[in-house]
Design a protein around this nucleic acid. Structure first.
Lengths: 138, 138
DNA sequence: TTCGTTGCAAACCCTTTGCACGCAC
DNA sequence: GTGCGTGCAAAGGGTTTGCAACGAA
């Protein structure tokens, strides 16, 4: 669910083993109520548009914690910044190389017939499919 | 071809519209003779292991030029640095999230049945498929 | 009290930029 | 001489870290 009421956020955090402090709740709310895929900077701005402030360090640390605990995903498409994705179910992305916009692609739309064999002594960790686009108008 | 003799490097540069200065030749040789996918830093180190030096600025500028001209490709998998790929034909990558190693996957091994429709007003620019792995031994 | 969390500022690292020098045509 | 290419150093921007203060159990 994408509705971000405090109650479900708190239980969500708990279910991922994250103690729900007020800053973490605020950051999670910002991410889960966001229609796009925000960067750390944008999350910082969203969180601090309200009265109370959250420091930059806490935002970065909290995002790392969320990723590590599996609450959210990092999307690596832009060498200059990390984008965060509240949707952790299997899906992929359109990435506009000019505007930087990122849009989800449902996994069912691009599922691979089969994965190639893993290299020796390696185990599967994740699959990212990124379709890079650019605006049609020159 | 991956053999990196000066003659073929020079004609390669010329065919991509890049005037072959000695620094550019040296950088191209480093990339094309490299079995892995080097970062800018590693290319700088490779180039400067010989007698003559190439400055950091020139390495970065030259790599950007090569990418822009289509001689090489950037691979965006690690948020902390850009990797470069001398292979510009259609292929994809295994990326080990622990060691940072990157290995090619031939396009024929993972071809998609079909691409989802482009978002409106966007045109196709490129397709990246990254299979993230980690070492099997804990 | 104790340990986890927060916040500020500084440090870090990769990359880009400003600007002067130098070489080729 | 003009313009591109190079090199040095400094700036830039996102991210991480050191450390002291804080707060909940």
């Amino acid at each position: 669910m994408n509705t971000a009421n405090s109650h479900s956020i708190v239980s969500s955090l708990r279910s991922y083993g994250i103690s729900p402090t007020s800053q973490r709740i605020k950051i999670a709310e910002a991410i889960f109520s966001c229609t796009m895929h925000p960067s750390a900077d944008q999350i910082l701005a969203m969180v601090n548009s309200h009265r109370t402030m959250v420091s930059k360090a806490t935002v970065y640390n909290t995002l790392s914690l969320f990723v590590q605990k599996g609450l959210i995903r990092e999307v690596i498409v832009d060498p200059t910044k990390i984008l965060y994705d509240a949707n952790t179910s299997a899906h992929h992305h359109f990435y506009d190389v000019v505007t930087g916009e990122l849009h989800d692609i449902d996994a069912s739309e691009v599922s691979l017939p089969s994965l190639p064999p893993m290299p020796s002594d390696r185990i599967f960790e994740g699959l990212d499919i990124i379709i890079r686009t650019r605006p049609a108008t020159a």
